[in-house]
């Protein structure tokens, strides 16, 4: 039983990172209807830039943390302006493929600059584990979970009360109406990419502190799909819950598959099996907008 409890806690921590990445994905999708296959690569680039600043340039962690955020904003603006904007109004497959091309480019940039071996962040938080209900939990796990919660709180408030957030929601709801009310759609698109990149980099930095970083970190971007499909493609709350649920679910499935059938590595596909089932029975997810349509 304790084994499963540990799995659930691990799942919650990984899940909170999934939620962060899924949050970025949903923000982009809501505002621009772009399905971003490069989300995982944004996570990876953020993690590597922070790593380079802290370890290779010896900056204090907080400074490099903020510099990383600045870097991701610049990267996001460049990507939106140079790659995505020419494709506004093109068919879905073109937009998907352009983000796939982008992810290849980012991955190759990281591999050419930093190589493919695992890099480890210097420890920032104390290593001594806290005891929670008799289970040892590393402080970095608690920090990861807390930071994710904090970010969700901030973004919920941002979308609810700030005028920019309301403008973004308006754009997501109806682009033409938003434009006729004087909202600059293009700057909203750029802004949504910036937020997504920033949130993803934070996820990457947290992940780097937990597991270290390597060039396969971008694979994380694929895990976003089960999370957002489960939560509903255009729902922030859905992304948060979906990420947590998928994180817990895949850890439990992994443990159960190993316990019961001796199957290894089931983690990688468990969430996708769930995804197929959700697509069959409830394609708009838990909180997504139902599109009424006969196909």
């Amino acid at each position: 039983m304790e084994y499963y409890l540990q799995l659930i806690i691990n799942g919650l921590v990984v899940g909170s990172i999934y939620s962060l990445v899924a949050l970025g994905f949903v923000i982009i999708f809501k505002a621009t209807k772009v399905v971003n296959f490069a989300q995982g690569e944004l996570v990876m680039v953020g993690a590597y830039v922070c790593f380079a600043l802290t370890v290779q340039y010896q900056l204090p962690f907080l400074v490099s943390f903020f510099l990383t955020l600045v870097f991701s904003v610049i990267l996001a603006i460049l990507v939106e302006r140079l790659v995505l904007r020419p494709l506004i109004g093109e068919p879905i497959i073109s937009v998907i493929m352009v983000t796939i091309g982008l992810s290849s480019m980012l991955k190759s940039f990281v591999q050419m600059t930093w190589g493919t071996q695992i890099q480890v962040f210097p420890p920032i938080l104390p290593q001594e584990p806290y005891m929670l209900m008799g289970l040892p939990i590393a402080p970095v796990y608690i920090a990861a979970f807390g930071l994710s919660l904090l970010l969700f709180g901030v973004f919920s408030l941002f979308f609810k009360y700030s005028s920019l957030g309301i403008a973004m929601r308006a754009t997501a709801f109806d682009q033409q109406a938003a434009q006729s009310m004087g909202i600059g759609i293009k700057s909203i698109f750029a802004l949504s990419w910036c937020i997504a990149a920033v949130v993803s980099s934070i996820g990457g930095i947290i992940l780097g502190n937990i597991n270290g970083i390597n060039a396969q970190l971008g694979q994380l971007g694929l895990k976003v799909f089960p999370a957002v499909i489960l939560g509903g493609l255009d729902s922030l709350l859905g992304a948060a819950l979906g990420g947590l649920i998928i994180g817990v679910l895949e850890n439990i499935c992994e443990g159960a598959a190993k316990d019961l059938f001796g199957l290894g590595g089931f983690k990688e596909v468990a969430s996708f099996v769930v995804l197929v089932i959700i697509l069959m029975i409830k394609p708009h997810g838990l909180f997504g907008t139902k599109e009424i349509e006969r196909v």
Partner: peptide, 10 residues
């Protein structure tokens, strides 16, 4: 190779 592939695609 992967980078050039992505660049070509884009």
């Amino acid at each position: 190779k992967e980078g050039v592939f992505g660049l070509m695609l884009v």
